[in-house]
Amino acid sequence: MRAGIKNIVKSGRLLLLADLINALIILLLAYAAASKLWDYYGFAQVLDQSPLLKPYANVLAWALPALELAIVVLLLLPITRLRGLYVSASLLIAFALYLSYMVLFAPHLPCGCGGVLKSLSWRQHIFFNLFFVGLAFAAIYIYRRYKTTVSESPP
């Protein structure tokens, strides 16, 4: 009984940690989307220079910030939060793969990331993204564990 209560309290603290991670990912995605929309032409210019994305620059210039904002909504609502974390982790992994491609094939080009993230080098950006992928998976683990703990505890 005592161990069970302790477990839930511990999970409650972990839950706060997961909520903080969730808020941090919302901050990152909302900032990235707002920066791209604020400097739409600047973002479009960078996409136009990318050998990989140039054919899709027209669509990506608005679709990417739109996708980021959609994920922000998923992360904001408690009912879709877990799905939002999976999608944001997938998007960050996709970004990391793209960044790796750029490091290998076009390291001299500027980054299309918005705001202050532009000041990061390609390599720094890969580590930055992977750090957030790690955080997303940590939050997924905590939310899933919390769900299990609550469903296993007696009413």
């Binding site: 969730n22 808020a23 919302i26 901050l27 990152l28 995605l29 909302a30 904001l76």
Partner: peptide
């Protein structure tokens, strides 16, 4: 979440 959006 809302605080994060406003800051962003």
């Amino acid at each position: 979440g809302l605080a994060a959006i406003i800051i962003a």
